[in-house]
């Protein structure tokens, strides 16, 4: 596993604000890597540090083995898809895509051919002569993608690329991005605040909070074995059990996490007061209070659905209760 991008002890401070605070990160070649976190958690700043738009206050960045701090963005072997796409409004779609080749001095005919190929790849072959303002949001997103890929970067950086798209388009683009990454075989570094997006697309996920990386792991790691209440709560609305409750069950005073789908109705177990019931289609989400702790469970189709204010018994397998030793 060759290292594509490595950050060692990297911080970026703005005065007293620590946007990125002592981060270590090692992204492998050909990996689909997601940086997940709430807004202001430092994930976008980290991406900008890799692209070269920001300089680290301290720390070292290596891109494919080379020290990157002194290298300006235009010399780095990475390309970025911007959140607002940043398409040049005065150039048509083909010239936008060919821009990187144009500034590299590729002759007009050759660069137009490459641009057309790149546009074919994102299914916009017929749109070369249009202006970006004449395209829909999803089409612009594809143009930005083609423009970043036409330079054959070693790594593609994507800053919340699907954030501005509606749900249906977003799901479709998720699959296309994943397929594209697989066929190109290059490293994708993907910034998002949508945990579903990160879990479904990435090989590995780094969860950011307040300028630091809280946890790095595979989607399964992050989902089933969160190391702290923050990760458990942020990644898919896990039930966070306070130390007291865990102590009463297992005798250890640590936080525990329990996926909503691991909780089920049972003849014996813990008494739960139902507080709300929401029908989600494939499942029903039931919110309840267990020993004064707010919890949710997901009941599959066909299960008996309790009513609000009912008191029922719920239970879970001991192996599903995951203990979190980080604060």
């Amino acid at each position: 596993m060759t290292s594509a991008i490595r950050l060692s002890g990297v911080s970026r401070h703005y005065g007293a604000v620590k946007a990125v605070d002592n981060i270590d990160l090692d992204i492998a070649e050909g990996e689909f890597f997601a940086m997940l976190g709430p807004s202001g958690s430092g994930k976008t700043t980290t991406l900008r540090l890799i692209a070269g738009f920001e300089r680290p206050t301290v720390g070292e960045i290596h891109i494919y083995g080379e020290v990157a701090q002194g290298i300006p963005p235009y010399k780095r072997p990475v390309n970025t898809v911007f959140q607002d796409y940043a398409l040049f409004p005065h150039l048509n779609v083909r010239d936008n895509v060919a821009y990187g080749l144009m500034v590299a001095g590729v002759p007009k005919f050759a660069r137009h051919r490459s641009a057309n190929d790149a546009l074919e790849m994102v299914a916009l072959g017929a749109y070369g002569s249009r202006k970006p303002s004449e395209l829909s949001g999803g089409q612009r997103q594809r143009v930005a993608l083609a423009r970043a890929l036409v330079n054959n970067p070693k790594a593609l950086l994507l800053d919340e690329p699907l954030g501005a798209l509606d749900l249906k388009l977003r799901e479709q683009m998720q699959e296309e991005l994943k397929a594209l990454q697989r066929s190109l075989g290059i490293t994708f570094v993907f910034v998002t605040h949508d945990q579903g997006e990160a879990l479904s697309m990435a090989d590995r996920v780094a969860v950011f909070n307040e300028g630091r990386i809280v946890q790095i792991g595979t989607p399964e790691d992050i989902y089933y074995r969160p190391i702290s209440p923050f990760v458990a709560d942020f990644v898919g609305s896990s039930n966070v059990l306070p130390p007291k409750l865990v102590a009463s069950l297992l005798g250890r005073e640590v936080y525990g996490s329990l996926r909503p789908e691991a909780v089920y109705l049972s003849d014996q177990g813990h008494a739960a007061l139902i507080t709300s019931v929401s029908f989600l289609g494939a499942a029903t989400r039931v919110s309840m209070a267990v020993s004064d702790v707010a919890m949710t469970m997901l009941l599959p189709k066909g299960a008996t659905i309790p009513k609000v204010d009912d008191i029922v018994q719920v239970n879970w397998e001991a192996s599903d209760l995951h203990l979190m030793f980080a604060p």
Binding site: P72, P73, Y74, N79, T80, F82, Q83, A86, F88, G100
Partner: peptide, 25 residues
């Protein structure tokens, strides 16, 4: 500002960004 960053990101040197992005805009 992202327009200028995008130009640099795609490999344009500062004078090329000036000539091909900043000046036309």
């Amino acid at each position: 500002h992202t327009m200028l960053e995008a130009s640099g990101d795609l490999g344009a040197r500062p004078y090329q960004t000036f000539r091909h992005v900043l000046l036309p805009l």
